[in-house]
Computed example of a mutant assay.
Amino acid sequence: MPLLRVHLDSDRITARRVLQLHQEGKTHHESREAAREQVWRQGRTPAGDPIFVGLTNGRRNVQLLYDVEVYSDTVR
């Protein structure tokens, strides 16, 4: 199944918290659900849970990066 990379705008405090939770083996549920919603808005159907892959290094705009497996034959 193909992966879709999702970029979510975030503030630095939230981004640090998401990264800290990831390093502890935990999940930031709000951002994971936001990634799932972004996939739906793009007309694709998620095939699994979004996987946190990192942060951007923007000085002004920080983004959370998630990979989401999607079904290849679905477009809403």
Rank of each mutant, 00 (worst) to 15 (best):
residue 2 P to I: 05
residue 2 P to L: 05
residue 3 L to I: 03
residue 3 L to N: 02
residue 3 L to K: 12
residue 3 L to V: 00
residue 6 V to Q: 08
residue 7 H to D: 07
residue 8 L to M: 07
residue 11 D to R: 01
residue 12 R to D: 15
residue 12 R to I: 07
residue 14 T to K: 10
residue 17 R to E: 15
residue 17 R to G: 01
residue 18 V to P: 02
residue 18 V to Y: 03
residue 19 L to V: 00
residue 20 Q to I: 01
residue 21 L to E: 14
residue 22 H to A: 15
residue 24 E to V: 00
residue 26 K to P: 02
residue 30 E to F: 05
residue 30 E to P: 00
residue 31 S to W: 00
residue 31 S to T: 15
residue 32 R to W: 05
residue 32 R to C: 05
residue 33 E to V: 00
residue 34 A to G: 07
residue 36 R to C: 02
residue 36 R to G: 02
residue 37 E to I: 05
residue 37 E to V: 09
residue 37 E to R: 15
residue 39 V to C: 10
residue 39 V to S: 11
residue 39 V to N: 11
residue 44 R to V: 01
residue 45 T to S: 11
residue 46 P to C: 08
residue 47 A to H: 07
residue 49 D to M: 09
residue 49 D to Q: 13
residue 52 F to Q: 05
residue 53 V to E: 13
residue 53 V to H: 01
residue 54 G to E: 07
residue 54 G to K: 08
residue 56 T to K: 05
residue 57 N to R: 11
residue 58 G to Y: 04
residue 58 G to P: 03
residue 59 R to H: 03
residue 60 R to C: 00
residue 62 V to N: 09
residue 64 L to D: 09
residue 64 L to A: 06
residue 65 L to A: 07
residue 65 L to N: 07
residue 67 D to K: 02
residue 67 D to Q: 13
residue 68 V to F: 12
residue 68 V to P: 12
residue 68 V to R: 10
residue 70 V to M: 07
residue 71 Y to C: 00
residue 71 Y to G: 00
residue 73 D to G: 07
residue 74 T to R: 14
residue 74 T to D: 12
residue 76 R to W: 02
residue 76 R to P: 04
